[in-house]
Structures are given as structure tokens and as C-alpha cells.
Design a protein around this nucleic acid. Structure first.
Lengths: 148, 148
DNA sequence: ACTAAGTAATGCGATATCGAACTAAATGCA
DNA sequence: TGCATTTAGTTCGATATCGCATTACTTAGT
């Protein structure tokens, strides 16, 4: 592996560690037993709209179908979402947010407000914002080249 | 959450997805049954030297001690590492790389060479390299403010 | 030296992730 | 229409992650 390869490698290493650290910080604050992956799903549904199929959600998060089945089962058990049969496709389902789900999302957001504020205050001067377009580009590239 | 807070939030979201996508790409290539976390540990030992304690490794990767115990047990079972008693602290141990471990690391590196080359060719013009110093800064910040 | 507090690692149990195989339904094509 | 293929979702089994409690050892304070 050449110099550039090592840099790419280091990049993913840093990404992994940041993900690990941020995940730990947020997980420690989330409401009782809510896992980061659960929150991520709620957040997706709130921000981008619910009424999605499980497969569409698995695809959006780039996780296997089975993982999404499990996550949805957990959130359904907590009554945060509701699964209904798909109106035009008997194989499929539609995911709906419930009022309890929206409240849970609000509570989760509130629980993370403090660390977010702190991080924003310490690094929000552009250190983070400036990176987002670049990261989006890389994410889109990886997304489109998943079978690389 | 204000505008800056949302940006910070989005940043961690992008990080999470990139981590997910990259992990999937690498996991698919790794030698039989080698998990990304196993490779990451081997890579750490090869690059930064072995003869570390389990706790030092858990700290380096920011994972709970129990997770590191498990990872080390897997690699020891594969004879990739060796655990010996710590010479001056009876509670602790020292992790050594074995020749088999170095070979396994080499094999893993080789197995990822293709995707790394591809990514380097497509994004290696600075898109990635330029981000590393910023990411290092953010990682260091999160590392030092873990109890945020 | 003795005891209390702190630290390194592990055992155990719960949950998350994921691949392989399966079921049911939709689609394509002769 | 009939049948093979594809697709959505689940079940099952294996492994990873992680919190809590425990054990063994070290360190600090007296």
C-alpha cells in the first residue's frame, strides 16, 4: 500500500474512532435502554417522514434486512412505531411513527442537548461545519460503490 | 437545538454512515471470519508495537474492557496473539503478536488492497487527505472530553 | 504490618448485528 | 394461464458489544 493508500486507511481509522467516541457519549445520555441505532431510526422517520417500508429503511441505513427487522421489532414493542400491511404489496409493510414515538424522539433529543451544546461551543466555529460537504461527498461515493 | 447544533448532529450522522459503509466494504474482503475489530487490533499492534496490556488497548480503542477481553480471546484462539502474565503487576497481562498474527495481518492488508486502491484512485486527490488533520482534532477533543 | 480503597481482568447475562435459509407474494415470460 | 424467478420480510443460529458483579492483586494511609 502506497502513501495515498495509507492516508485513506488512516482516514477510515479516524472515522471509526470518532464514531466510537460519539456513540459512547450519546448512548450514555439516551432514555432508558434506547440504543443509538433506535434513536437513529426515530430521527430518520421524524426528519424525512414515516410511512416507509422496512426494506427502504434498511437501505437508507445500509444495514442488512435482518438488522432492520430486529430494530423495528424493538421500537414496535415500545409502541414508538406501528407496522401496517402495505396497501398494494402483500409482502411488504409500512412503518408509522406513533405519538409515543415522537415523544420518545423529543426526549432523546433533549437528553443529548447538553453534550451537543458543549461540542458546538467547543468546535462549532466551523471546525465541524466545514467538513460536512466533504463527508457527504465521500458518503455518496461509498454508497454508490458499495460492491467495490 | 439551534442551527449549529443541527450541523454538529448532521456531522455525526455522516460519520456514522461512512463508518457503516466502509466497515461493510472491508468486512466483505477480510480473510475467513476475521472481523473488522479483530483486524483493527492486529493493525494497531503491528503499527504501534505489541507488548501492551489489555487495558491500554481497550483505552486506545475506547471500548469497554470486557469487549477487549473478548476480542483478545478470539485472536488468541486463532494463535494470532499471545497473552503472558505482566512481569511487575500480577493483575495484568501483556499482549504479544505471534508470527501467525503478523501473517494474518499481512493477508488482511492484501485482501483490502483492491478497495483501498479503488477509493484512493477515486477520492485520493486530496478529498480525503485534507480531512485528516481536522478529524484528528475532533477525535482528540472527544477523547479528552469523554465524560461530556 | 494491616486494612481500605483502587485497579486489571474475567464471567455472566442481555442486546445488537448479520449471514443463510425459509415463506409468502409479486413479477416476468412463454 | 402457468410456472420460474425475483422480492419483502422473518426465523434461526453465530458472533460482537457492553453493563454489572466478582476475583485477584496493588497501592495508600495509618
Amino acid at each position: 500500500m502506497d502513501e495515498n493508500g495509507r492516508r485513506v486507511f488512516q482516514f477510515f481509522n479516524e472515522i471509526g474512532i470518532i464514531n466510537q467516541l460519539a456513540g459512547a457519549i450519546f448512548a450514555a445520555r439516551l432514555p432508558d435502554g434506547l440504543h443509538v441505532s433506535h434513536f437513529a431510526l426515530l430521527n430518520h422517520l421524524v426528519r424525512l417522514g414515516d410511512e416507509k417500508t422496512p426494506l427502504a429503511l434498511a437501505s437508507a441505513f445500509q444495514v442488512p434486512k435482518t438488522t432492520m427487522t430486529h430494530t423495528l421489532a424493538v421500537l414496535e414493542k415500545r409502541a414508538a412505531i406501528q407496522l401496517t400491511p402495505h396497501p398494494s404489496d402483500g409482502r411488504s409493510k409500512i412503518v408509522f411513527l406513533t405519538d409515543a414515538g415522537r415523544k420518545l424522539h423529543n426526549d432523546a433529543i433533549a437528553s443529548m442537548a447538553d453534550p451537543i451544546r458543549q461540542i458546538t461551543a467547543d468546535l462549532g466555529d466551523g471546525t465541524i461545519s466545514d467538513l460536512i460537504p466533504q463527508l457527504e461527498k465521500i458518503r455518496a461515493y461509498l454508497d454508490q460503490n458499495r460492491s467495490i
